[in-house]
């Protein structure tokens, strides 16, 4: 399963990189869609159907809205002028070398600690926290909900859900305030 997951994630990364460099806004959007729907496949592979349902619906709605926006706009990015010129060639050369050396040093540094830390981790899919085992064992009896995710969302973490709903409410208020064309008398 990890191999399939890695392939999907590589596709998502390629889509994200293409979205940055695409000339056409519409194709950049479709490349963004690759990221979203790849995430749906990831959630399904990791056995999280709740998240997959939310992700696929929200991704579709946002994609439709963004396509509608892009079709009404200029569709192509405006061409910008090239990067600012620097005086001497040797100067550019020096900075180039220093930058590359810095990047390599930092990459090796991070790789070393990544390698050190990855050996102490549990295997893929075996969680570490004791809290989640307590949830999995007792959520069904304590909340009476057969779907553990809903039980946790609306019982153990009710404040969290209240915050999420409030965020959505605030977002709608903000959008209505910004997009109101004329002030009401």
């Amino acid at each position: 399963m990890e191999i399939i997951l890695s392939i999907v994630i590589v596709f998502m990364i390629l889509g994200a990189i293409y979205a940055l460099y695409a000339k056409d806004l519409l194709s950049a959007l479709i490349a963004c869609g690759i990221v979203g729907y790849g995430l749906v496949i990831c959630f399904l592979l990791l056995r999280a159907p709740d998240l997959a349902i939310v992700q696929i619906v929200v991704e579709t709605i946002t994609l439709v809205i963004m396509v509608a926006v892009v079709l009404n706009s200029t569709r192509e990015e405006l061409k910008e002028k090239a990067v600012v010129k620097v005086d001497g060639v040797s100067y550019v050369h020096q900075r180039y070398i220093v930058n590359v050396i810095l990047v390599v040093v930092f990459a090796l540094f991070l790789l070393y600690f990544f390698k050190e830390s990855i050996y102490t981790l549990n295997h893929f899919g075996e969680h570490v926290t004791r809290m989640s085992t307590a949830y999995i064992e007792s959520a069904a009896e304590q909340t009476g909900s057969a779907n553990l995710v809903t039980g946790v969302l609306f019982d153990f973490r009710g404040y969290d859900t209240l915050g999420e709903a409030t965020i959505l409410f605030t977002a709608v208020i903000g959008i209505l305030t910004i997009l109101r064309a004329k002030a009401k008398k």
Binding site: D50, A146, V149
Partner: peptide
Amino acid sequence: HLTPGGGFAGGA
């Protein structure tokens, strides 16, 4: 509370 999904997914 029985099957995957819930308020957020169904509302969307």
